[in-house]
Amino acid sequence: MSGSRSIVKLALASPPVSVESARTQPAIQVSNLSIVFDTKRGQTIAVDRVSFDVAPGEFVCIVGPSGCGKSTVLNTIAGLEVPFEGDILVEGSPVYAPRPDVGMVFQQPHLFPWKSVRRNIAHGPRMHGKSKADANAIADDLIAMIGLKRFADAYPNTLSGGMQQRVAIARALANQPRVLLMDEPFGALDAQTRAVMQDNLLELRDRIKATIVFVTHDIDEAIVLADRVLIMSAGPGRILRDVAVKLPRPRSSSIMVEPTYLSLKKDCLDVIRAEGLRAFNQSDAS
C-alpha cells in the first residue's frame, strides 16, 4: 500500500504524466484523511484516518448511517472542505480547491433558478471560456441524453424533482469531468423515481466513462450501482469494510431479486448490524 503511494509521488515529481503511469495510477487516492469539526463542546473527530483508492473508471459507493462523515469525505475530495490531516490526490495531483476535472452532484439539485435548463447545463463550459454556441451545443447533446428535449427552455421551478436532478447531473457532466462525485443525489426522491434514476445513471455511466464516487445511506442503491461498496461507521467515521460487487453488467435495479445479490446484501447488513450493536453497547457502558 505505502509502496504504491511512493511510486505515485515519484510520478508527480515529473509532471507530464506518461500514458503508462496514468493507466496504473488510481483516479482518486485518499490517504489517512482525518477531519475535525469545532463545536461548542470542543473538537469532534468527524472522520478518522480514512484511506482508500479508486481506480480509473471505477464506480464506488460509500454507505453509512447519517452523521458518519461520508458527505464530508466527498466534499473534501471535491475541494469544498479542507482536511485536518491526510492527503487527497485526484489524477495524481493534490486537491486544494474545486477543480474542473472533478464534477459534483448534490442531494439538492441546486440549479440556478434564473437560467433555463439549457443555460444551466451550458454554465460550466461558458465559465471555461467556451463560446455561447459551443456551450449550447454541449448542453443540447446532454439534454438529449437525459431525455429532456422538450424542457430545454424551461426554468427549473417548472420541473419535477427527478427532472431537476437529471439536469443537475447533466450540468456536472458538461465539463467532462474525469471524476464525478455524487452526494446522495436520489435521497430526496420518491421510491419509484429513485429506481428510474438509478437505471438512468447506469446507462449514462456506460457512455461517459468517468470515475464515480457515490454517497448513499441506502445499501440496495449502493449494491445495484457500484463496483465496490465502502461501508462506513459513525462517530468517528471509519471504513469498516471494502466489499467488491462482482455482479454482471449491464445491470438494472431488477437485479435486486437475484440470489447472488441477496447474499451480498446479507454480508453488508451483517457488518452494519455488528457495528450498530458495538456502538450501542459502547454507549450503554459509558
Binding site: 441546486h110 440556478f112 454554465h123
Partner: peptide
C-alpha cells in the same frame, strides 16, 4: 443559497465572477 454558490464553484465559476453570476441574481 450557499448551495448555489457551492454548485457554481464546482462548475468552475471564478470567485470574481460569483457576484454577477450568482449573488446579484440570487438577491434580485
Amino acid at each position: 443559497d450557499r448551495g448555489l454558490i457551492r454548485a457554481a464553484l464546482m462548475l468552475g465559476t471564478p470567485r470574481r465572477q460569483m457576484l454577477q453570476e450568482i449573488v446579484l441574481l440570487g438577491a434580485l
